[in-house]
Each structure stands twice: as structure tokens, then as C-alpha cells.
């Protein structure tokens, strides 16, 4: 029997979930939702749901792994056993260990780690539900959690993937597009420096497509960056509004 591959882009040029090629999935961000962590953030990007907790800078244990001139940064990316359609073993897989490393390296350039020698900063990224793009959403949320923890940053890091499906470049791939498509290129972008701190590629793109994909990724990251700034401010503005509303009530 011959299996027919589902078309990823329909005749109107829309993708499997009805998005245009340069359209992001609906994104929701929340900051400061965990009381026990120094900083925390939650992101929902389409059906992907991720929670991030940041601890630190805190004392290093065991002491000898600390560095004399800067803080060490540790990162753990982990997928919950229930985050995928088939149960995922909770033990860290090869993939998770690698992603932990590259996410750490994507965030390290923005952290003023030299301010806190002999200490460490821990970042825990927990994927609750996975539908593609979790490394990028993880980076986006982790930079929010770092900012929420009050750790000095040069800038926030925004991340988004660009890929090629059915011969067309699209941003923010979901799981199906990622698996069935021809290429996937995650990008983490630091707007203040106009620099990328993560750039990977699976599959194949021509040189021309690559540069076009980079440009699309940058645009998508800037949209996410605006949402990040909004999410960080929102909590404080909400309190401000409620206090000011209370004062007006008293005066009235």
C-alpha cells in the first residue's frame, strides 16, 4: 500500500494549522509564577508549554567547581514524561543533555556572570507539553526567568525556528512541520548586539534560502522580543493599575 504524504501547505498558501508562512503561533508568556524560585517564567507557544525556574546567584556546591572570576551557569533542559504522545523516559536523554548545553551557551553571552565570582546560577527548563520549537521557546522563557531573578543581563534573548516545508520557508515550525519538512533552523537572537547566540540547521537549504531564512528568523525573533518586554513589565504595571484604581475609589 502506498502512503500519501499529507500536504503541508495548501493551495491558498496556508500551513497545516492555518498560518501564513511568516506567522508565529499564538504566544502567551507569564513571569514570576513560582514562589520558591528566585526567578521564573512560563511560555505557551502554540501547543508547546514550558516552565522555567532560575535560582541564584547562589553558593556553589561542591566549592571547587566554582570559578574565581565569574559565576558558573548551569542549565537543565528536561521533558516531562507526559510531554509527548508516547511516554518519554524521565532520565535525561542524549538529546536533552545536548540541548541543555546549547541553551546554556545561547544565554551565557548576555549574563554579567563576572559580577558574581565563586557563585552559580541554575536554570531549569521543564517542557510540560511538546509540539516542536521547545528549545527556542525554552531560551525565550529562560531569559525572562533570568531577568525576573534580578540577574544583570546585557539583553533578553529571543529565539525562534525557521524551516522549509513543501519547498517554502516558514517560521516557528510545529511538530508536524518539523518532522515532515525539509529543513529546520533554530535561531536565538540578541537584538542589542544584532547577533545570534544559537544557530543550528537540520536538513538542507540552498545558500540563498539560508540567508532568506536568517532574515525571516530575525524578524520573528524581534516580534517575540517585544512580547518578552511586555511580559516582564506587565506584572508591575498590573499592581500599579490596581493601586491607582484603589486611590481613585477612595477619593470618589
Amino acid at each position: 500500500m502506498e502512503t500519501v504524504k499529507r500536504k503541508l501547505i495548501d493551495e491558498n498558501g496556508l500551513r497545516v494549522d492555518g498560518r501564513r508562512p511568516d506567522e508565529l503561533r499564538p504566544i502567551k508568556m507569564k513571569v514570576g509564577l513560582l514562589a520558591n524560585a528566585d526567578g521564573s517564567a512560563y511560555i505557551e507557544q502554540g501547543k508547546s508549554k514550558i516552565i522555567v525556574a532560575v535560582y541564584g546567584p547562589r553558593e556553589v556546591h561542591p566549592k571547587h567547581i566554582g570559578l574565581p572570576d565569574r559565576a558558573i551557569i548551569r542549565c537543565r533542559y528536561h521533558m516531562a514524561p507526559f510531554s509527548t504522545t508516547e511516554r518519554k523516559s524521565p532520565a535525561p536523554s542524549r538529546r536533552e543533555i545536548e540541548l541543555s548545553k546549547i541553551i546554556r551557551e545561547a544565554l551565557e553571552p548576555v549574563i554579567f556572570s563576572e559580577y558574581y565570582p565563586r557563585s552559580m546560577i541554575d536554570i531549569f527548563i521543564e517542557v510540560l507539553q511538546s509540539d516542536g520549537g521547545t528549545r527556542c521557546a525554552g531560551i525565550t522563557a529562560a531569559s525572562l526567568a533570568l531577568a525576573d531573578a534580578g540577574i544583570p543581563l546585557k539583553d533578553l534573548v529571543a529565539a525562534c525556528a525557521v524551516g522549509k516545508v513543501d519547498g517554502q520557508l516558514v517560521v516557528d515550525l510545529n511538530d508536524e512541520e518539523d518532522k515532515e519538512g525539509e529543513a529546520d533552523m533554530p535561531l536565538a537572537y540578541i537584538p542589542a548586539f544584532n547577533a545570534a547566540s544559537l544557530l543550528q540547521m537540520d536538513g538542507q537549504l540552498t545558500e540563498e534560502e539560508f540567508f532568506k531564512a536568517l532574515e525571516m528568523g530575525k524578524k520573528a525573533c524581534l516580534k517575540i522580543y517585544e512580547m518578552q518586554k511586555q511580559a516582564l513589565k506587565e506584572r508591575y504595571l498590573k499592581i500599579k493599575e490596581s493601586v491607582e484604581a484603589g486611590e481613585e475609589n477612595q477619593e470618589a
Binding site: 531577568a147 544583570p152 543581563l153 546585557k154 533578553l156 518586554k229 516582564l232 513589565k233 508591575y236
Partner: peptide, 10 residues
């Protein structure tokens, strides 16, 4: 502005 809420990288 003075007393404006800002975020990292702003």
C-alpha cells in the same frame, strides 16, 4: 522618563 519601568536591554 524618570521613574519609568525598564527591562534588561532597554
Amino acid at each position: 522618563e524618570h521613574k519609568q519601568l525598564v527591562v534588561p536591554g532597554e
